[in-house]
Design a protein around this nucleic acid. Structure first.
Lengths: 152, 152
DNA sequence: GAGTCTATCGCAATACGTTGCAATAAGGAT
DNA sequence: ATCCTTATTGCAACGTATTGCGATAGACTC
């Protein structure tokens, strides 16, 4: 089995098209960074991505990685949010949009898919008029078991 | 009613008591940092606080400021959340607990008081079982006018 | 008032991100 | 195939936040 889905018209290919369609250029690093992000499916912090990219190509610098990640975001191929400690966490477009809820007690982190988040987003819109961005949704709180523990 | 509570047994005094009650020490810097935070009512970023403290006392170092802020948080006299760019924003206990909603379009930021946030927190709890921390609530989205602008 | 214990401080080093600038190289034109 | 334009890169410096460690100085005991 190849772990890589379709080698053909996959992410990097579409990405290349999108980049070039905007008069921007497609480079080795961008290919590499996209690959790394695709490989770390799920989430990865900025620093992790930088390190992985540098493993594959030591000549790549942090600035390049971060700038490329910004580009991927502009194009809608990736997004990032800030974790409990304010550090960045990136994920690919492939991953469906989702939010995060982080427990301040035990550090557990659960994800919120669109369906689960819907009532929350609806409440936000009712109260504020804002259309909240699910991908940036990063909540802090206490999970049920920590609440129970704190209550005794 | 006076807007400034009581100049006497105010924040710094209570804080001192709380600190010493835990076998910890009350120092000039802590007094100063508490004053600065109190003076910048509303919000201030970590860097801003550091700068203001250093203006008043150049011998104070960032590490001291940040450590003191952590202490204030532990004691429940202050709290911080991460803004849109992941940087820290602190506010004093005096300020009622509140969340933030930041517009990705125009950069506007509105606050959510406890009453406004209630339905949102309720929705979060229904969906996840988590008791969300209002003070850490920092939402990203699009405000009504930016949504309208984007829609055309 | 002197001595002891240890919390706190300042410093220096580190980690994570960002930015300005000069050199390089991608992609289109000739 | 070569040249041109300019997007991109790498470097270096900076901004923000954190951590370890030795030196300092509170607060408490005698």
């Amino acid at each position: 089995m190849k772990p890589t889905p379709d080698p053909q018209g996959s992410l990097a290919t579409r990405l290349q098209a999108a980049v070039q369609g905007r008069g921007q250029r497609w480079t080795e690093q961008r290919q590499l960074i996209a690959d790394v992000l695709a490989a770390s499916d799920g989430h990865a912090t900025g620093a992790e991505l930088v390190e992985r990219v540098r493993t594959a190509d030591p000549s790549a610098t942090p600035s390049t990685v971060y700038r490329t990640l910004d580009l991927l975001e502009e194009l809608g191929f990736a997004s990032h949010h800030h974790g409990a400690d304010g550090r960045e966490t990136y994920h690919l477009e492939v991953v469906v949009a989702h939010g995060h809820v982080h427990c301040q007690g035990c550090g557990a982190e659960v994800e919120l898919d669109a369906a689960a988040a819907k009532p929350i987003l609806a409440a936000i819109e009712r109260v504020t008029g804002y259309a909240a961005d699910l991908d940036h949704l990063s909540l802090q709180g206490r999970c049920p078991s920590c609440r129970a523990a704190a209550a005794r």
